[in-house]
Amino acid sequence: MTNRNDPPKNRFVGWLMGEENPLDDELELIVSTSQQEGRDVLSLEEAERQEEAEELRREKLAIDEKSQSVRIHSWAKHQGAHWLETLYRIAAVVLCGAIIFFLMTTVVALPPFGAENNPYNNEVSQRYIEQGIPETGAVNFVAGMILDYRAFDTFGESTVLFVASCGVIFLLKLNDHSSGKPSRAMLEAEYDDRHHEPKNDGILQFAAKLLTPVILLFGFYIVLNGHLSPGGGFSGGAVMGAGLILYLTAFGFEDTRRFFTYKMTRWISCLPLLCYAGMKSYSFFTGANHIPGGVPLGTPGAILSSGFILPLNICVGFIVMCTMYTFYALFRKGGM
């Protein structure tokens, strides 16, 4: 770094270092001398008067425009609203009727409901069912489908959930990093929360004390058994999130923060997403290049089987749980 007072060796280097702007004094509008001469002809008073008139004209124009828009809006509010509203309602109902009618005619032309040889019961679903166990090892064919054959799609879903929770945080979180003490909005939210939500409700607390562990355990069971029975990461994660929300409703933010903080939520939603991406990148890479992946499929029906499906289910479950909890906490108080 050169001294600021030294003349820069190179103009470009100087510009890079932010010491000199080569475009200084070069981009200003240069008033042509002839115009300046023309201006000198007008007397100072005359110029002032002209400027004043111009300003007046502009103000009047603005007032005119404003009154015009106010008039239109008030017409729309009072007289126009009535028949426009009726017209709009009739048009909406007619449009919806037309949409229902056209969809109905299409639907009636579909092949009959529940027939065996419908065109959509084709070789795709047959392949998923008949080759599912040797290829994925999952007893639950839907789990095998969404977490093995179509794992990329499920990765997109998890990302959608993650992005949605980021968006909700971005829109609703009251910022607390500006200074040490909480802001006014945060204090208000705190007061609202204490005022409107149940506080120290005996029945709720007793029920939550009994049910929360059971609900969390059941949710985790659904997640772990995703490849064996109905369930999987999404439903199990939703159940676990419901358990956390129940605890939060009964005991408030202070108690929940003892074991589930904002920082932890961030880790629990980011790490599984990265794990998912890593695992699936590995299996896509090895699969596409016909390299043996080295992940044993195990015996179908055992809890430790079906390759990557079990860890992927756990990842998805944690993401869903954190997303549900984030939604609830932010909608309720704008923080955790």
């Binding site: 065996e116 959509y120 019961n121 795709v124 679903s125 047959q126 998923y128 069912i129 008949e130 599912g132 166990i133 007893v139 639950n140 064919f141 839907v142 489908m145 969404i146 179509r150 799609d153 499920t154 879903e157 959608v160 959930l161 029975s229 109905p230 999404f234 179908p300 029906g301």
Partner: peptide, 29 residues
């Protein structure tokens, strides 16, 4: 339902699993 029962892996026993996966995607979104 498309979950292995009695060890039968014939497509004639189970319903189509593809729409179930699509509905799952739809619910999440």
């Amino acid at each position: 339902a498309p979950i292995l029962t009695d060890g039968i892996t014939s497509a004639e026993k189970y319903i189509n699993p593809v729409p179930s996966g699509l509905v799952l995607t739809g619910i999440v979104v």
